[in-house]
């Protein structure tokens, strides 16, 4: 499936905040109620459309556990976007944001777009961090902000797509050097002649669905 751009994302944040669930909801439209601890890093992908252009998102979901930190750090450089996730029902995950941000800023390229996500917004009754606090933190550090629920899928699409929009805008503004792949951006294959297909299988629908 051809695309105009390819963006690399990483998802970071404390363990158990719902990073893997966000990815699963985005790629497979499913929710996983049990905590399946991520070991190291897992990969996922999906196609989206922005401004009438097909954009492929390649997403690396990292382990939040402290012991994997040295592994996950290897993924910062080379990513164009990062979703920094905390859990609105656990203040400690919010308190750790500064550390995460420092780590990200230190190891990533300076143009990386960071989206701050307060996840589990469906658990309003157990809320421990006010939405305003998230907004304030984002404002203070120049991040985009959104509250999501990987369970109800509320704002999940938007979180991934708005990050892509921001990157796309940066490309339009000439901020990103798209020829340097270390920035986590790749231009799609220029309409090359399609390879010969056996029998009848045509190009197929190029919808937004994942593969």
């Amino acid at each position: 499936m051809s695309y105009a751009y390819l963006f690399k994302y990483i998802i970071i944040g404390d363990t158990g905040v719902g990073k893997s669930c966000l990815l699963l909801q985005f790629t497979d439209k499913r929710f996983q109620p049990v905590h399946d601890l991520t070991i190291g890093v897992e990969f996922g992908a999906r196609m989206i459309t922005i401004d009438g252009k097909q954009i492929k998102l390649q997403i690396w979901d990292t382990a939040g556990q402290e012991s994997f930190r040295s592994i996950t750090r290897s993924y910062y450089r080379g990513a164009a976007g990062a979703l920094l996730v905390y859990d609105i029902t656990r203040r400690d995950t919010f308190n750790h944001l500064t550390t995460w941000l420092e780590d990200a800023r230190q190891h990533s390229n300076s143009n990386m777009v960071i989206m701050l996500i307060g996840n589990k917004s469906d658990l309003e009754a157990r809320r421990d961090v006010k939405k305003e606090e998230g907004e304030a933190f984002a404002r203070e550090h120049g991040l985009i902000f959104m509250e999501t629920s990987a369970k109800t899928a509320a704002n999940v699409e938007e979180a991934f797509i708005n990050t892509a929009k921001e990157i796309y805008q940066k490309i339009q503004d000439g901020v990103f050097d798209i020829n340097n792949e270390a920035n986590g951006i790749k231009i799609g294959p220029q309409h090359s002649p399609s390879p010969s297909l056996p029998s009848s299988s045509g190009g197929g629908a190029q919808g937004s669905g994942c593969c």
Partner: peptide, 17 residues
């Protein structure tokens, strides 16, 4: 399997033909 997924999603299988 993570790398296999990445390989396929990046349309690299096509390059094996």
């Amino acid at each position: 399997s993570s790398n296999q997924n990445f390989f396929r999603e990046s349309s690299y299988i096509q390059r094996l033909t």
